[in-house]
Every structure is written in structure tokens, then in C-alpha cells.
Design a binder for these strands. Sequence first.
DNA 1: AATCCGGGGGG
DNA 2: CCCCCAGGATT
Length: 357
Amino acid sequence: MPGTLTPADRLVAWYDRHHRDLPWRVAPRDRRAGIMPDPYRVWLSEIMLQQTSVRAVKPYFAAFVQRWPRVGDLASADETEVLGAWAGLGYYSRARNLKRCAETIAVAHGGIFPDTAAGLRALPGIGAYTAAAIAAIAFDRPEPVVDGNVERVTTRLFAIETPLPRAKPEIGERVAELTPDARPGDFAQAMMDLGATICTPRRPACAICPLNADCAALATMDPETLPRKAPKKEKPARRGAAFVAIDGTGAVYLTRRPDKGLLAGMAQVPTTGWTSRLDGDTTVAAAPFEAAWHRSGTIEHVFTHFSLRLDIFGAELVRRPETAEGWWSPPERVGDEALPTVMKKAIAAAFPDTFRR
DNA sequence: AATCCGGGGGG
DNA sequence: CCCCCAGGATT
């Protein structure tokens, strides 16, 4: 009955023809023949794909399954080796949780992955999204799988103009309504593939979209404007001062930031705290040592949760003063220091000829 | 609810 | 070059 074709039917039909061939996937025709993917590979890929592109994941996935073909192999592996194999992928707590999760499955589950979203959700490193994705893809559970791609597709499909993250509950309901009992795993993968290849953040390819006849946004507005995002709330403004000292050789005085907190362990030029309102006297008092400090401009930098305006003070010293905590970085080495962008800006503001990168 | 974690890709 | 992205854990 062609008249009863649902959006999910159209989407899965598109996926049958256009799915991406990925090493952790079982192709639709094989799935329909009863072949299911290895839950270990689905899990490993989903953890790697958190905040990480398919392109970046592929070589790491190949290396992992070559070296640790089954979850038990990973469970008994050396954690340092696992972290080493993860190096370059980022978000290293994922690798530590990966190891803990493998151990839990080996020890507490007899080496068998839980086959429900609730069971998976209880494991380290598996949140709501990943639990639903593994349950759907590896076990064909009709779980609503909502990642960033699916949020974009769904807000457009239903023209949901409520901004994120407030729209999340509604998106979840819509995806749950959309998710079919037949082939929910392929449906979930199809939604994510559609978001990655057709329903893209900018310039979506609506002309070739399998859901263009169903899309409320395409009918009534510009789909590219969805999803709406909550207006970025004003970042609190902080102020401070930074002190850039160079000696006669052009070496810059640097210190190391504390091991915890913002920019932990990175190099910096000495600065005041970044909250206080400063008058001239307190600023000079905060300098790391006595010198002929002179104002050399102001820099702006925006962090995730606040914007910072730093008054820059520079000094050229004839002799290096006695200091315990910092070090003098020669001009040809400054570029190799672990200097965050804000610190590079500060140094460049004080001595534009010394610091080039 | 807010913050941190890291790399890749796009404007 | 800088800005943006977004799942899980922690607090």
C-alpha cells in the first residue's frame, strides 16, 4: 500500500541505497538476511564517535579491533597501552572509561554486552545517547536515538522553533514516534547518515533529501535556520593584567599554571587574578618583580564562560631578577612553549617583534 | 545547571 | 587564523 508509506519507510529505503560502508556496520542487505553486528564493534565505534568525526575514528577503530579483537582482550589489556592507542583522539576519559567498561563486561557480565538500553546505560562511559544507539544498532531495540545530527533533522522535519536545549524533550518525543518497530537499527543509522550527508548544518541538500516531501521546515521556512539555539547568554566580563618581561637576549619570563582549573598546567606570563576591578596601584603591586613596567595595550580573549580583558604591561630588563618559580624562554623557543592563545596574544601585544608565530 | 574534556573542520 | 561543534562525567 504505497499510500501508507511513512517518513521512516522512505528514510530506510534511502539508507538501503545510500548507506555509508563503515567498518563497524553490517550492510542493510546483510542485516535483512539476519546478520547482526558485533556489539563490541558497535560499542567501540560509538564511544570513539562521541564528539569525533567518522574520518578521524576510522584508523583508530581499525587499530583497536586488530589489537584487541574482542571485549575480553580489551579488558585484560594494559591501561597504558590502551591510552597510548587512543592518543590523538582526544577526550581521554573516554579511553579510561572504555577500559573500565570492558572490565565490567568481562567480570560482571560474562563477556556478554547487555542487550537493553537500561542495561547499557549503567556501564561506564555510556550515557543516554550511546545506550540507545547500541541497543538500536546492535540489538534492534526500537530506542529513540538522538545525537546532534538527529536533533537537526528532527527540528527541521517538524519545524520545531523552540530553541535548544529546551527543545530536547519534544525532539525526543518526535523521534520516538518516528522510530519504527521494524529495522530500528537501520532507521537510527539512516537518521544520523542523513544528518551527516544531506541535512547538514549549512546548505542542506534538500533537493535530493528522501524526506523533502515530509519536511515542515522546507515547506514553510528556510531549513538552514534550524535548529534554533538559545541566545548565548552574556558572558560575564572579567578583567586583569598580565606582565610580559624580556631580558637582554629577548627571552620571555614564563610561569606554569596550576595543575587544576582553567588552562591547567599550561605556560603563562604572570598575571593578576581575573575577576577583580583593578586600579593602577594594585596592578603594579601585582607584578612578579620590580621593573620599569610600562603599559603596552590591552587584549581581549573569550573563553567558554567569560570574556577577559587583560591590560598588558611590558618590561625590558638588563639583568634577570632572582625568581624561584618561573623560567626564561629564549625567543626561538617561545613558539614551542605550551602557551594558550590568550598568552600568545599578551606576549605579542607587549613585544610584537619578539613573538611571531 | 554549569563546567571541563581535545581534536577536526568550517567560515 | 579563530570559532564552533556536542556526549559524558563531575560537582
